[in-house]
Design a protein around this nucleic acid. Structure first.
Lengths: 157, 157
DNA sequence: CTCAAGCTTCCCATCATGGGAAGGTCAAGC
DNA sequence: GCTTGACCTTCCCATGATGGGAAGCTTGAG
C-alpha cells in the first residue's frame, strides 16, 4: 500500500467502525485537491460545517465532506469568490432551491469576469501599442516612459 | 478661491519662500489623483523618496514629486504592479537607462496580462455554457450545480 | 479663543493562500 | 516498551493594494 503512512489508514486499522467512513484532513486534502490549511480555513469561516473529531481532537472527514470539498474546488476553479461559493453550497444543499437563483449567481459572476477581462484587454492594448513604438535599441529614449510622464508638466501647472 | 481651505494655500500665504513650490499632501492627492493614504504608503515602501516636511512635521510636495505621483498613477492604471512601478520609476530617473529594459519590463507585464485574460476567458466560457444549459424555470434541477457536483461520487471511491 | 478641517502615526480589515512555530498523537520498527 | 518521524492541533504572521478609523496635533478663519 502506497498510503501506508497516512493517518487515515492508521485510523482505519485501529477503529473498525470508522473504516471506509472517515479520513484524516491529510487524506481529505489529497482527495479534494485542497490544502489542509485551506480546509481548516474554510471550516473557520463557516464554508464547511464543523466536522467530526477523534478523541485526540483530529478532524475526521466523511465521503460527503469530501464531496463538498470537491464542489468547492470546482467552483473555485471557475473563479467564484468564497462568498459566492458559500451561496452556491447552500443552494446545492437546499432541496427547494431554484435553478434561476443559481443562474443569476452565475451570470453575476460572468459579468464580473467580463468587466475584468475588458479592463485588462484595454491595458494590454495600450501597452502593446507603446511597446511597438519602442525601438528597443538600448538607448535612453523611451516612448513608454515618455507616455507615463507626459502631461506631467503640461497639466501640472 | 475655491481651494481656500486647503492647507497648501495656507502654506503659501504664510511662507513666501514656499509659495508655488510646495504643497500639502491633500493638494498632492488632488493633483495626482492618488489618495493621501496611498501617498504615505508609497513613501513608506520606498516607492517615493522621503519628502520635505514643515516644522510641524507636515509633508511638503514639490512639482517634481507631483510628477512622480502622476507617473505612478498612470503606470498603475496600466496594471503594473507596485514592484514593477518601482523599477519603472528608477529607469525613468536614470539617465543611462536602456529602452530595451523598459520594453522587456512592459512585455513581461503584457505576458502576465495575457495569461490572466486567457484564464478568465476560459472560466467565462465554461460558465456561459453551463448557464445556457440551465432552464432557469425556478425548479431545483440545475445543470450548474450538477456540474460542480459531478464526479464527486464517481471519482470519490 | 474656538472650531473645523487637515495633518500626523498607528492599528486593523479586505481576499485567498500559505509559512512556520510550539506542542500533542499515532503507528511502525527496533 | 521506547524511539522516531509523520501527522495532527492551534496560533500568529505575510502577501498586495487599498482603505477605515482612532487619538492627537496644527492651522487659519471667524
Amino acid at each position: 500500500m502506497k498510503n501506508r503512512k497516512l493517518l487515515a489508514v492508521t485510523l482505519h486499522d485501529r477503529a473498525g467502525d470508522l473504516r471506509r467512513k472517515y479520513c484524516s484532513i491529510g487524506e481529505a486534502s489529497q482527495r479534494s485537491g485542497i490544502s489542509s490549511k485551506m480546509i481548516r480555513h474554510y471550516e473557520a469561516t463557516g464554508l464547511l460545517p464543523e466536522v467530526h473529531r477523534t478523541a485526540a481532537n483530529y478532524r475526521l472527514y466523511s465521503d460527503a465532506d469530501i464531496n463538498q470539498l470537491r464542489f468547492i474546488k470546482r467552483a473555485r476553479s471557475l473563479g467564484f469568490s468564497m462568498q459566492q461559493i458559500g451561496r452556491l453550497v447552500s443552494l446545492w444543499q437546499s432541496t427547494e432551491r431554484s435553478n434561476s437563483e443559481v443562474r443569476n449567481l452565475t451570470m453575476e459572476h460572468v459579468a464580473e469576469l467580463d468587466a475584468r477581462i475588458r479592463e485588462m484587454q484595454e491595458m494590454r492594448h495600450s501597452l502593446h501599442v507603446l511597446a511597438m513604438r519602442c525601438h528597443a535599441d538600448g538607448k535612453p529614449e523611451c516612448p513608454i516612459l515618455d507616455s507615463l510622464a507626459i502631461d506631467s508638466e503640461a497639466i501640472g501647472t
